[in-house]
Design a protein around this nucleic acid. Structure first.
Lengths: 181, 207
DNA sequence: GCTTTAAAAAGTAACTT
DNA sequence: AAGTTACTTTAAAAAGC
């Protein structure tokens, strides 16, 4: 019954369109697209709704970041690819999409004494000179959490929402076992 | 066989040359930071063990020296910030921090986060503050730590605010600007810590 | 390792007003 | 002194230097 609600803040997903793409050819279909091939090998296209950013590569692979739900990430990718297909009808209608990372935030409800957590909790890094959060690496699920003195937490590295949720719960449980919360 | 022998000589020659370079680099950084020989020695011990454990691969000697020195300063309780280390070495703050994490992990060196208390003597002497002010500042910091007022806050900012408060309380007032400059933080940070400490600890408003 | 994207947490910094 | 913007940390993919 640990039941700590988490909020998904960002989803990173990749798609493989299955066909190489001539970036200069599809670029005109994406209003406001940015591309400095000297600086970065992909096109950068920002969608307003769902508010996301897509990185499009000549290999036919694409990365979508910024969505707050898996549905929106998938939706954003399809909207972007549909526009590209208007200038390149060879782009398949169906392709694979894979969630690569999920960032979520949560509130443990109680404040934390980070110096104490740093001493007793395993696999942590805490360098307040550099960053106010304590870095906690969980092995199962394999996620990384940032713990703050306020009791707020950020969980990243999860591939599924369940893992992000589990990561937060296990962290709270472990803190409880060590009498740190 | 002769070839193998020559290679061995060449390699050990390079090893010695690298060690000599590392130690001269360490001397240069240490003197620029005004560190005592004991800290320099501690740093060379860290550096040598890094070499023995083959941790230099893929890293610059300067970077490992800087990180070793950063670690030694912390272990000897005479901390220098990553910015200060980066300033005197020719290594970026990011590189020093990254190499430091690598070394502490690989050499199983576990250092607790720098305590604001360790910055008090240095800042106080640069500000010409008395031992009474230092003691008072340390007392303030210890109370703050007990109440969890230091979690997530930069150690230099906490030390600076505590010294500022102590200097006012004991009639040796220094301006926030002077303290901020010595501690390497902004006046805004001192004010934020100052408010937090005076409000959440005892102290009546002493502004 | 770097480049580019997005987003949260909390502290600190650098500018404006 | 208040506001704003921006940078620190974490993860992950993409193609290439």
């Amino acid at each position: 019954m640990t039941d700590v609600p988490i909020k998904v803040e960002n989803i990173v997903a990749s798609a493989t369109l299955g066909k190489s793409i001539e970036l200069p050819k599809v670029a005109p279909a994406l209003e406001g697209v940015e591309y400095n091939l000297e600086q970065f090998p992909g096109l950068v296209y920002k969608l307003k709704e769902p508010k996301t950013a897509a990185l499009i590569f000549g290999s036919g692979k694409l990365v979508c970041t910024g969505a707050k739900s898996i549905d929106n990430s998938v939706k954003a990718i399809h909207i972007t690819v549909d526009k590209m297909r208007k200038l390149d009808s060879e782009i398949p209608e169906e392709f694979n999409i894979k969630v690569q990372n999920i960032v979520a935030s949560a509130n443990l409800g109680k404040t934390l004494n980070l110096e104490a957590v740093a001493l007793d909790l395993e696999n942590t890094e805490y360098e307040p000179e550099q960053f106010p959060g304590l870095v906690y690496r969980l092995e199962d699920p394999k996620v990384v959490l940032l713990l703050f003195g306020s009791g707020k937490v950020v969980c990243t590295g999860a591939k599924t929402i369940d893992d992000a949720q589990l990561g937060v719960e296990k962290t709270k449980e472990r803190l409880g076992e060590l009498d740190l919360i | 066989r002769l070839r193998k022998w020559q290679r061995k000589i060449r390699i050990s020659g390079a090893t010695e040359r690298n060690l000599a370079f590392a130690l001269s680099e360490l001397d240069r950084d240490s003197s620029r930071l005004g560190l005592p020989r004991s800290v320099r020695e501690a740093a060379s011990v860290v550096y040598r063990s890094a070499v023995e454990n083959k941790l230099i691969r893929g890293r610059s000697i300067e970077g490992v020296v800087a990180a070793s020195l950063y670690a030694a300063c912390r272990r000897c309780n005479v901390p220098r910030t990553l910015d200060e280390i980066a300033e005197v070495s020719r290594v970026s703050k990011k590189e020093v921090g990254r190499t430091y994490r690598f070394l502490t992990r690989e050499l199983n060196i576990k250092l607790p986060p720098t305590s604001p208390v360790d910055y008090v003597p240095r800042f106080a002497s640069e500000l010409s503050l008395s031992g009474e002010v230092q003691s008072k500042a340390i007392e303030i910091i210890e109370k703050a730590m007990e109440k969890g007022l230091t979690s997530g806050r930069g150690p230099t900012g906490v030390a600076a605010a505590a010294l500022y408060i102590a200097s006012v309380l004991l009639g040796e007032r220094k301006t926030q600007r002077d303290v901020a400059d010595i501690a390497g933080v902004t006046e805004v940070t001192i004010r934020n810590r100052y408010k937090e400490l005076t409000e959440q600890l005892d102290m009546g408003v002493t502004l």
